[in-house]
Computed example of a mutant assay.
Amino acid sequence: MQCLAELHSHSTVSDGKPTPEEIVLRAVYLGLSAIAVSDHNTFRGSAIAIESAKKLDLNITVIPANEVRTIRGDVLVLCERIPYEEPPKIPNELHEWAISNNCITIAAHPFHIGRKSVGRYLKNNPKDFDAIEVWNPRGIPFLNKPATKLAEKYFKPQTSGSDAHVLQELGTSPTKIESNECDLYSILDAIRKGKCAPTKSYMKISTIFNVLKWSIKRRI
Rank of each mutant, 00 (worst) to 15 (best):
V75S: 06
E80H: 12
W97F: 11
P83C: 09
V37I: 11
N92E: 05
R69N: 03
V75C: 13
S52C: 14
I50K: 03
I48A: 02
P91V: 14
A27Y: 07
E85S: 03
L30D: 02
D39G: 05
I23K: 10
R44V: 06
R115I: 07
I90N: 09
I60N: 06
P64N: 08
I50S: 06
I99W: 11
A49D: 09
H40P: 05
W97Y: 15
I82M: 05
I90C: 09
L30G: 02
R115E: 06
H95Y: 14
P87L: 01
T105W: 08
H95C: 14
N41L: 12
H109C: 14
A36C: 10
V75M: 07
F43V: 14
R115L: 11
G114R: 11
N41R: 01
A107M: 03
I113N: 00
W97H: 02
L94Q: 08
D57V: 03
A65T: 08
V75Y: 06
H112P: 00
N41D: 15
P110N: 13
F111Y: 14
T42A: 08
G114A: 07
V28G: 14
A98D: 02
L78K: 10
L58R: 15
N66Y: 03
K55R: 14
E85T: 13
R26G: 01
N101P: 10
H40D: 03
D74N: 15
G73I: 04
K55P: 01
N66I: 05
W97V: 12
P110H: 12
K116S: 06
I71S: 07
A53Y: 00
I48S: 02
T105V: 08
D57I: 01
R72Y: 07
S38F: 13
E67P: 07
V37T: 04
N102D: 15
L32I: 06
L58G: 12
R69P: 01
Y29Q: 15
E51R: 10
A65H: 09
E80Q: 12
H95Q: 06
R69I: 10
N92W: 08
A107R: 08
R81S: 14
C79Q: 06
I63V: 01
A47S: 14
I60E: 02
C79G: 13
S38C: 02
T70S: 12
A49C: 01
S46P: 03
T61H: 05
A107H: 10
S117A: 10
V37K: 05
C103Y: 05
R69V: 02
W97R: 08
